[in-house]
């Protein structure tokens, strides 16, 4: 079977700051044309996921949005919720966008947290709030899109087991101190 290009391909290219085109799945065009998930199904899955998280005493802050449009955690942050971008290219995007690793102590709203399971990247989220107590990081809230499911606002460690744990923190800018 050969996938032929459609005349009305809804996918549009996404570029990193360096000009590098972020790859999108060759079959996503086919999938866009074969129909997407319904809102009822996304809500059913999200409700079940929330119950499962609660059973494991991992409480999320809130569900930000439920969308039938197909984008994922990488697409939420790096493609303005317009595309599904495979998690395997996360390191390439961070490099091509000029991100550098920062320490937990340097975390603040707007920075990025990546997750890994057994050394493989699984997920990425946007830091929205950092709580400090006596100068130390006491809590981090993250906004992230959970695969095909909802966008969730959650404590950094309150994620499905399959995401593993936070592995690295990233910033695309150098801090500016008013002189």
């Amino acid at each position: 079977m050969t996938l032929l290009p459609f005349d009305d391909d809804p996918r549009k290219p996404v570029y990193a700051r360096s000009g590098w085109e972020i790859p999108q799945l060759e079959w996503s065009e086919f999938i866009y044309h074969s129909g997407l998930q319904t809102e009822t199904v996304v809500r059913q899955r999200t409700d079940s996921l929330m119950r499962d998280m609660a059973r494991k005493e991992k409480r999320i802050t809130r569900i930000r949005s439920v969308s039938t449009y197909l984008y994922n955690c990488v697409g939420m942050i790096f493609a303005n919720r317009r595309a599904w971008v495979e998690i395997d290219v996360l390191d390439d995007i961070l490099r091509e966008d000029g991100y550098t690793k920062v320490a937990l102590q340097q975390l603040e709203a707007g920075k990025i947290v990546s997750y890994a399971f057994d050394g493989s990247p699984t997920h990425v989220g946007l830091v929205t709030f950092v709580e400090r107590y006596e100068g130390e990081v006491a809590g981090v809230t993250v906004l992230s899109k959970w695969g095909k499911d909802a966008e969730i606002l959650h404590p950094m460690s309150a994620v499905p087991v399959i995401f593993g744990a936070p592995s690295d923190f990233w910033s695309e800018r150098t801090p500016h101190v008013i002189g």
């Binding site: 799945l25 059913q44 899955r45 079940s48 998690i87 395997d88 057994d118 990247p121 399959i162 995401f163």
Partner: peptide
């Protein structure tokens, strides 16, 4: 079951799915 389904619907990569 939904319990099984949501274990994998949260993934963001095809290779992650195969590994899982």
């Amino acid at each position: 079951s939904l319990e099984f389904i949501v274990q994998f619907s949260v993934l963001s990569g095809f290779s992650s799915l195969l590994r899982a």
